[in-house]
Design a protein around this nucleic acid. Sequence first.
DNA 1: CGGCTTTGACCTGCGC
DNA 2: GCGCAGGTCAAAGCCG
Length: 307
Amino acid sequence: MDKKEEQKTDNLMGNTTFSNQMNIPAGFSTPCEADEKEDLGFIDMLNLQEYTIPSIFDCLLTTPLIPSPASTNPVSSEVVNSPATPNSSSISSSSTEAVPNDNQSTETVEKEEQNQEKINKQLKTKKKNQRKDRFAFITKSEVDHLDDGYKWRKYGQKPVKNSPFPRSYYRCTSKACVVKKRFERSSDDPSIVVTTYEGTHTHPCPIMHRGILQETTTTTFFDGGGGASSFIIPRVLHYQQQPYFHNYLTSFSNTNNSSIPPLLQETPFWPSASSLARDHGLLQDMLPFPMLKEPKEEQNICYFLTD
DNA sequence: CGGCTTTGACCTGCGC
DNA sequence: GCGCAGGTCAAAGCCG
């Protein structure tokens, strides 16, 4: 590690604070107010902590953020890039089913239903087309641009409608890598930053095998299926590498029964013992060696550095 | 001087 | 077709 890097690390290692409260941006609601900090136990400082996945995702799954259908908040419309519920159209149509009083009203209702189905189909097609390799999460941070270890070049900034905060557009500086990400602050809670990634890195993280702490953030993942989960983590630089999240999100969105934690069924989100030796741009590639240990038995373990 | 940010212009898609 | 909003381009300026 050269001096410059060392200095950067030192700077980043200091002043880590915890935030166990998170204001849910407009457009989301949380059915459960779990004490995340207590669940995760981010207490010990200057120690490498081990957290079992079930404990983390018990928390995750007890505090889902559910996009509110009535919301017009740009944040919610952005992060949810697929229908909130795969069967939402059928549900809504069935819920609006009325018992007709006569044939004329039956025809009217049928026409309305047909129109509604047509609209729903169009919406589905539109959203399907829009669904690229994209996901979003929100963090509670004072910093707009969260350093994830990759080098980004800002290529645009646009004012967001109904928001005093602009949206910033970044592109990966690596040649032939077309990954983009954008940042925008919640208009309701300026401390909340919505980060959207698009694409997959075609190269390893420039700064590898080093976990660098920056400030603690509260992070919420959006699974692309309308569901979301939030928890608090001391942010390790580079841990937000995107294939790592992408795997998790894919796993999550592929789960038919949303009540069953997908990560308890399969855990592509976390490094397996066999994958630890590889360098695929995943979490294990980003954390410093001592942080990565063999998962005990079948239990996947996540390591976080605490201040 | 190279790399980055800024910012106005331009392009594109969509709704009316 | 027009207006609007989101996204991107690219020239200019800044900075180390």
